[in-house]
Design a binder for these strands. Sequence first.
DNA 1: CACTAAATGATTCTCCAACA
DNA 2: TGTTGGAGAATCATTTAGTG
Length: 294
Amino acid sequence: MYFSLSRLVSLDVKWADLFDTSNPTFFDQHHNPYYELIVIADGTVHLEVSESRHTLQTGESLLLMPWEVHRGWNAQERQGQFFWVQFSCNPDLQEFVLERASQLHIAHAERTELRTTEVHREDLLVLPRRQQSLQRYKLLGLFEQLVQTMKQSKDYFRFHATLLLGEILLLMAGDFLEQRQLGAASPASYLTFRALADHLNNFYESDVSKETLERVLERKYEYLCQVFKKYTGTTIHHYVHQLKIQRAKHLLEQTAKSVKEIAEEVGYPDPFYFSRIFKKLVGVAPQHYRNSKP
DNA sequence: CACTAAATGATTCTCCAACA
DNA sequence: TGTTGGAGAATCATTTAGTG
């Protein structure tokens, strides 16, 4: 079973601690209103979670859903210690159906965020319900820090705890990716795409013609379009317009420059054309946009 | 998989005029 | 000063077929 976590999530650590299974309450029923992540710190832990019984070794992790009932079992065997953290998460974790291994690849590299203000897609972290970490000491180290942080309750400890939890989740998701032997090498086309996007980001107001792009990147334009579309879902010039308009909006709000000057500055020699594009992308004409802002 | 050539359809861009 | 619209030319985007 797998879960996906949105990149745009807000996390909140509720509590974290180290639990020793010699504590007699280990065999009582436990449940809580939050997500709970358990990582075995030492020894073996026998844990029963809603009817299914797990035997977890050091470094293994188990992700519990809110209100999921869990308790220890197998009282005969000696058991160890585990870290746990309870957290809330918005949006919630989604159950993730992993049909093909390639889905992970898509989550990892297929679409990329550009430098515009709009969010084109959410990258999802994929977290397995149960997993043995490849970097168990790093994981346990992070947990140790998390528990310390929550105990000290000073400075920005809640903020720090959130970052630590994020790092823990990222580490686990990264491990999972690696275990799938995916996400290792970036394809060459991705590097081409990066170079292209960098060029657009830097020169969008001056020179992004077909010829220049071919010359700078030493690839045929047809290919560049193909690659750009593949990673972003949009076209080169649509992206350039977005960059220009984004800057124009800023200039309209923050300066007293005329529309004509702004058009010139962001890369539209023809102010008539600038107006038209602005209207198309923003919904209102430049001057109206400026007037509507306080 | 990375890339090119060629063909074709799509859109963007320029320039002009009319109007608020 | 700024917005909107049209017409035609210039560019751009996409597809298909093909190479190593």
